[in-house]
């Protein structure tokens, strides 16, 4: 992968999207997921995407994360145009710069917590030790347990450790607390906030839980495939102050 010329220019946003449109089908049955979204995500920010299901937030996240491509429009990560990448380059992009956290954890059941993290660190260029990543999410003592031996919250924290261990530039979390109770959810959000704070990782969190928005630097409200409103929060609160 060619090195971007201005990779380290701090004034570059982490992401810039221009007129992103995504639709499925054609003619009468055409369904729009995104309708001309323009967006800039500054580096190091914690961004929360809020909106009802079908509002296009997941589609937007998938496109930014290099999992999906828009029907029209462009996406830039630093100075790379992601929308011009082929599958191989998108894979390299995800492998080196992106961390994903899924709603249902998606851990590998045949690997222990440590090994789930190592799976990613083995192929990353500048990873932290898997043990350190697990300590960051407070799981230093359960490293040799298999997913079947961990609770939902623990599994999700392993997933976060797995996402951040490669020291990604950006962390995408799609409903990270969706399958968890509020107490466990807050522990998970704390892990995400800590990574964002301590490692300077840009974090984008999808949720339809409005309470979570309070911990974000920036909140994007989505509806009907468009960003309806963008709030900048100058005093984001700590996750343990949240409740729902």
């Amino acid at each position: 992968m060619e090195t971007p010329i201005n990779m380290n220019r701090d004034d570059h946003p982490a992401f810039r999207a221009e007129q992103l449109t995504k639709f499925y089908g054609s003619g009468e049955s055409r369904v729009y997921a995104l309708r001309g979204v323009d967006l800039e995500v500054p580096r190091g920010e914690m961004v929360v995407l809020l909106g009802p299901s079908g509002s296009g937030k997941s589609t937007l996240l998938n496109i930014l994360g290099g999992l999906d491509s828009p029907t029209e429009g462009r996406v830039y990560f630093d100075s790379w145009e992601l929308t011009a990448f082929d599958d191989w380059h998108l894979t390299k992009f995800r492998r080196e710069y992106v961390g994903f956290v899924f709603q249902f954890y998606n851990l590998i059941p045949s690997l222990t917590a440590r090994e789930n993290v190592a799976l990613v660190t083995e192929i990353a260029e500048n990873p932290m030790a898997p043990e350190r990543a697990l300590e960051l999410v407070g799981l230093g003592k359960r490293m040799d347990h298999f997913p079947a031996q961990l609770s939902g919250g623990e599994q999700q924290r392993v997933a976060i450790a797995r996402a951040i261990a490669k020291q990604p530039r950006v962390l995408f979390c799609d409903e990270p607390t969706g399958a968890l109770d509020s107490k466990t959810g807050i522990v998970v959000l704390e892990a995400i906030a800590r990574v964002n704070r301590e490692l300077g990782t840009t974090a984008m969190v999808i949720t339809h839980n409005a309470a979570i928005a309070a911990m974000a630097d920036r909140v994007l409200h989505m509806a009907d495939g468009q960003i309806q409103q963008m709030e900048v929060n100058s005093h984001p609160c700590d996750p343990h102050e949240l409740s729902w």
């Binding site: 894979t91 995800r94 080196e96």
Partner: peptide, 16 residues
């Protein structure tokens, strides 16, 4: 399929 697709999302190549 789910396990393998997760790995693809995590950045493992098709070959891996």
């Amino acid at each position: 399929a789910r396990e393998l697709a997760s790995l693809r999302v995590l950045g493992l190549t098709r070959g891996e």
